[in-house]
Design a protein around this nucleic acid. Structure first.
Lengths: 252, 252
DNA sequence: TTTGTTTTAATTGTTATATCATTATACAAA
DNA sequence: TTTGTATAATGATATAACAATTAAAACAAA
């Protein structure tokens, strides 16, 4: 008693979790990965092998493998020559985890959209700096495709989203790409709304201007325009109920 | 034969995956969550209950529960009254998944730092707009604490990181908070380096100025200063090997 | 009543064994 | 070369059992 450490009022305790054998296996593999002892594609072994190596039952190994698989650390194949292997990076899985966590934490649409503005603004900025000839060709092609579907709201929305994705990809930053794809997944229901011809034309005009800035490598202008673009989309989306303003729909 | 669909050269088939029973259970629970049929804390049941409800073995239910647990969708408690419950949002888990995916995808430090600039820049901007009286008090307190540990590089680094976190929290945006915490986890090894007294004093000066902008609700100035701050930290971090410049260490 | 202790029952953790479904490989047949 | 077939490896699933953990209930003491 009288332990000063224990009586500190603001002491916050780390949750104590009895580490199961399965979790210990998970941690061992995870640590090995971060210590550079594994490369994507490396074979860990079959359930039987691993059960023998760790001296535990197959079920316990299965528990660990299921966790590692869900974390995206390993991939499991059945059949001869199958077993558990270190996975190639799979960012789709992360997107799903992000969506789940936002859902559980009750993160609002507005909060997510502010994050989207941050991601896409920086994406446009870096795209202007780093875009390759191939990036410009793809962006140009997507602009042309969008031009052909201006009257089909669903198709235009789709083309617009592809344009935004292509910009992020032109940034050459895989961290941004992952974030963008994750967010697109999360905000999908909102963006599935229809765009009128007028809105489509306005968006297309902005997209053309974005392309011009990126081609000219004017990163600051690209960033500012992208943010304005997203903020105006958001303003429309939050301007009231759909009934208030039938034309107040977003496109991309 | 002669099926036009099948002979189309560019036809790409979606891979057909036999969905395991365990995965079907995972998807059912996941869909129910997104359809609003579950709230955090809701009891799913024990392994035995669920095995009976889904008419599968306990092993299969365990596989599904292990996956759902790793996704952060459920929490599992052992003992009487235990079982699987819908989890409260746990953003730490997401941080780990992000770190794993970046590791596997081979995302570079530079890419991650560009993302960090985007997140923290927007965080500072929103903090200036949304900061509460409590936020200002905490930021002020952290500045004072940092003042007392200027000569201890490790302590000052720690205090600086807490200051940055407090700014993000002042933004009131849980999506940004989640991203920041995730990134901090990922870039931890870099930031663990030591800061000299000179660097600490410079950082402290900038932090004081950041506080002033946030208090004055000057969002644009706060954003710009934060970005400059991070870019200069990054410039030092990438200026060469540690041997080249012993003072080129980062602090926060 | 309040507090501390013991008991009990529920539940996950782990092991063992067995069968089924899936897959890669080797090899034979056309 | 192409196609089919047998074989072995491997995960997926099921059943049964026991150990370890934990919450709740019952009980005792102050």
């Amino acid at each position: 008693m009288g332990n000063a450490e224990l009586t500190k009022p603001n002491q916050s305790w780390a949750p104590v979790r009895a580490n199961s054998v399965a979790n210990q296996i998970v941690m061992q593999v995870r640590e090995a990965l971060f210590n550079g002892k594994f490369q994507p594609g490396d074979l860990l072994g079959s359930e039987k092998d691993l059960a023998a190596q760790f001296d535990v039952s197959r079920i316990t190994v299965r528990d660990a493998l299921r966790t590692l698989e869900t974390m995206g650390i390993i991939e499991i194949r059945v059949g001869a020559g199958g077993g558990a292997r270190i996975a190639e990076g799979n960012l789709d899985y992360f997107s799903d985890a992000l969506a789940v966590q936002f859902k559980l934490a009750g993160v609002t649409e507005r909060e997510i959209l502010d994050l989207q503005v941050a991601i896409e603004g920086t994406g446009a900025e870096l795209a202007a700096l780093n875009r390759s000839r191939e990036n410009l060709e793809e962006l140009s092609e997507l602009l042309g495709e969008a031009e052909n579907v201006m009257d089909s709201s669903a198709d235009f929305t789709d083309a617009g989203q592809q344009f935004h994705l292509a910009i992020i990809e032109a940034s050459g930053n895989r961290a941004l790409i992952a974030q963008f794809r994750a967010l697109r997944y999360v905000v999908w229901p909102q963006n599935a709304q229809r765009a009128t011809r007028e809105i489509a034309e306005n968006a297309q005009k902005i997209h053309h201007q974005l392309y011009a800035y990126i081609e000219a490598q004017d990163s600051e202008a690209a960033r500012k325009l992208m943010i304005d673009h997203l903020v105006s989309i958001r303003a429309v989306a939050f301007s009231g109920t759909a009934a208030d303003d039938a034309t107040g729909v977003i496109c991309c």
